[in-house]
Amino acid sequence: MSELHVIGQIIGANGFPNNSLFCKWGIHAGGAWKILSGLKEGQTQIDNPELDDMSCWAHPIDIHFATKGLQGWPKIHFQVWYRDSIGRNELYGYGYCHIPTSPGIHQIECTTWRPVGTYWEQISSAFLGGGPQLKNPDLIYDGSDRFKLKTQAMGVIHLELSIITRNFEKYGVES
């Protein structure tokens, strides 16, 4: 079987309205992909920077896959959350990006978005906090129904990923 090893980190995020942020992440791959080692989801710590607008997480990612084909190439998806001064968590954005297909070190910027909701949900959100969230989190990386959503752009997540491929040519998998 061909193998893909992803080693790196979620460096942090910037461009969000507030900076006390943490991130939930996960990796989704097609049915032909099998995880040999590593975690396919996790959560960073909260960072509340005082001098910079960049929330730094430096959260490690280390996952090893085996596959028989390229269909369903892995994607990494994110949920960025804000924690206010009294401990409430508010969703600030969703995002996803494909794991790079070429071996080497890659600097990736993943843009994020969040649902806007109806006019009344926007007013409620302004006074009470919170806001609309996706009922089905698969919409983050599966664009089949996402075009129906009204969204607004949020900040950017920064990643550094090292990609190692093994036996792709030996088994006839062309990248």
Results as ranks from 00 to 15, higher is better:
Ser125Arg: 09
Gln152His: 09
Thr101Glu: 05
Phe78Lys: 02
Gly95Leu: 04
Glu90Cys: 08
His106Trp: 07
Thr101Val: 07
Trp113His: 03
Phe16Asp: 00
Leu21Gly: 02
Gly69Ile: 05
Gly26Phe: 02
Leu36Cys: 07
Leu51Ser: 12
Pro137Arg: 11
Lys150Ile: 12
Tyr94Phe: 09
His59Val: 06
Thr151Asp: 03
Ser37Pro: 06
Asp52Ile: 13
Tyr92Ala: 07
Trp57Glu: 02
Asp138Lys: 15
Ser85Gly: 11
Met54Leu: 14
Pro49Ile: 07
Thr165Gln: 05
Asn18Ala: 13
Gln71Met: 13
Ser102Pro: 01
Asp52Pro: 09
Leu159Arg: 00
His28Gln: 10
Gln9His: 09
Gln152Leu: 10
Ser102Lys: 06
His28Glu: 08
Pro49His: 08
Asp142Met: 13
Ala66Val: 06
His158Ile: 07
His28Ile: 08
Ser175Asn: 01
Pro100Met: 03
Leu159Thr: 04
Gly8Tyr: 00
Pro115Ile: 07
Ser162Leu: 00
Asn167Phe: 02
Gln122Thr: 11
Leu128Trp: 15
Glu50His: 12
Leu36Ser: 01
Asn18Pro: 03
Ile10Phe: 04
Cys110Asn: 05
Pro100Ser: 01
Glu121Gln: 12
Asn19Trp: 08
Tyr141Thr: 09
Gln152Arg: 11
Leu149His: 04
Ser162Gly: 00
Asn136Met: 15
Asp142Glu: 15
Thr67Cys: 00
Tyr82Arg: 04
Val116Asn: 04
Gln43Met: 15
Phe127Asn: 10
Lys150Arg: 14
Cys23Gly: 02
Gly172Val: 01
Leu139Thr: 11
Glu90Thr: 11
Ile108Ser: 01
Asp52Cys: 15
Leu36Lys: 05
Asp138Ile: 14
Leu36Met: 11
Leu36His: 00
Asp53Pro: 12
Leu139Ala: 15
Ile140Lys: 06
His158Arg: 09
Ala58Phe: 14
Leu51Thr: 14
Trp33Phe: 10
Ala29Cys: 12
Asp52Phe: 11
Ile140Met: 11
Glu160Ser: 10
Gly26Tyr: 04
Phe78His: 04
Ala13Leu: 03
Gly104Lys: 04
Phe16Leu: 07
Lys170Glu: 03
Gln9Met: 10
Glu50Ile: 13
Gly12Thr: 02
Ala13Met: 05
Asn18Leu: 11
Val173Ala: 02
Ile108Phe: 02
Ile27Trp: 00
Ser37Glu: 12
Pro115Asp: 08
Leu159Phe: 06
Glu169Cys: 03
Leu139Ser: 14
Glu169Arg: 02
Ile46Pro: 00
Arg83Phe: 13
Val80Asp: 06
Lys170Ala: 04
Ser175Lys: 00
Cys23Ile: 12
